[in-house]
Amino acid sequence: MLMYFVLTAMGFILFAICIVGLIWSIRSGQMDDLESPAVRMLHDDTIPPPSK
């Protein structure tokens, strides 16, 4: 039986980590803009290499 508790505990630890991550992501504004990140990732703004 012990193993069920251990693994359930592990599950809850992961659950807790996820909750922390979720709350942080909402509070820090990660979710404020759900449109532009999808477009911004397409542009790398790489500096063009110097032409010879």
Binding site: L34, A38, L42
Partner: peptide, 18 residues
Amino acid sequence: YYLPKAAGRPVYSYRLSI
């Protein structure tokens, strides 16, 4: 990352990805 990059267009729904 690589599917939008290779297709040159944004993911269908960023909201759904979250």
